[in-house]
Design a protein around this nucleic acid. Structure first.
Lengths: 216, 216
DNA sequence: TAGATTGTTAATCGATTAACAATC
DNA sequence: TAGATTGTTAATCGATTAACAATC
């Protein structure tokens, strides 16, 4: 329920981090926090935190600060952690497997409800209590279960075709780990590209171009 | 070799993508490209591409455009793909394993030279032709090999301690997949946080708050 | 009430886009 | 030379920070 209309991408990307830090505070037994204190902890400015939160509503109380538990719940609602959006995983190789077992989808508002692969050796195996199905059964599955999200852990070459197929089957969003850059014409489709190679390269740039202490 | 001094983070994050797209063009046999054509393909503006590239030098030719192969090589040099910076992987669980085998480190300017874990069942096993060592041998290994980069695929609880230990052993950069937010006091240490949970939550926000076609 | 801290408006900063002279 | 496209400066836009009145 955004206050006005459009929430900027910068704000959206900070929300999960707020949610995470508030969760930690809660675990530590902190009930109350001011924007100044939270800013210090998250290495942000108090101003930015207040601006960000006020995109969605006034969650604080003047002279007091924010109730940690309340604020966390509010941000959780905004993020849709209660939605349990259905997701299918395409590609049960190393990376697909790691993602399926490593993340608690429910905590993030998703429900992993199907896993598909084309490798006959994988089919029938179980992963996170879900039986891996042959990719040929994807359309049948989607028509029955209507997943909104597809997680792509497939080779680059396979990505464009699978993408189009999934869109045809009603998938609304992609969490893309393939080396293919999803850059769709369909502009109602949501894409979150996770390019691990790009991330490593950016790190490598910083390492390679860091000014050494001794050079200073 | 940055022209002036500081390259903005926004530019750094686009460099790997340029590198990737230029690689694709090269594979397709395209020798020449204008900023306008590249912009169309990457969904950027031509202006931005020219601005970005001119942070590092004039790689183009007026009236002609850019030589794809040359430009790719230049950006590769800037990113340090030739550097082969030594990296150690800490944590050989699902995610660590996937990262070790899924990515070609050499392509990204890194060399994976050691893998460590604390689970006795893992120790001695091989992964990407590297024998997994007991974490107790980490300091000995670092003193001998001087890795610059550490890849953290460990539980949140273990992260703060391992981080400090690695810094003490001369590690300069972290590629952090743990759920711990590395937010160091040491300000000469480079950190690339990859929070898969945050990424999924951001996607989930978009899915949950998408304006449905029918609601429009 | 006095002190604290929010919500919000205004000022600043940085990044993106537009324009155009330089030049191949 | 004429046409094209760069490199670079100027204009615009958006995001962050600062300031402060509102209020608990």
């Amino acid at each position: 329920m955004p206050k006005s209309e459009k929430i900027s991408n910068s704000v959206i990307r900070r929300l999960p981090r707020y949610y995470r830090f508030l969760g930690e505070l809660l675990k530590e037994g902190t009930n109350k926090i001011s924007s100044r204190e939270l800013a210090e902890r998250m290495k942000l400015t108090a101003s930015q935190i207040r601006q960000d939160l006020n995109c969605f509503g006034g969650f604080g109380q003047q002279g007091y600060g924010y109730n940690v538990s309340e604020l966390r719940t509010e941000i959780g609602m905004i993020l849709g952690v209660d939605k349990q959006n259905k997701a299918v995983l395409i590609g049960a190789g190393n990376l697909g497997h790691a993602i399926a077992v490593h993340l608690s989808f429910e905590k993030y508002g998703c429900k992993l409800c199907g896993i598909f692969d084309s490798d006959p050796k994988m089919i029938g195996q179980e992963m996170s209590n879900i039986k891996i199905c042959d990719i040929s059964r994807l359309s049948e599955f989607c028509r029955q279960n209507q997943p909104k999200i597809a997680i792509l852990c497939i080779p680059k070459s396979a990505a464009p075709h699978i993408c189009e197929q999934l869109i045809g089957l009603g998938v609304k969003a992609f969490w893309n780990f393939s080396h293919y850059d999803i850059n769709l014409e369909h502009n109602d489709i949501i894409v979150e590209n996770v390019h691990l190679g790009d991330s490593l390269l950016a790190l490598n740039y910083c390492v390679s171009n860091a000014v050494d202490e001794k050079d200073k």
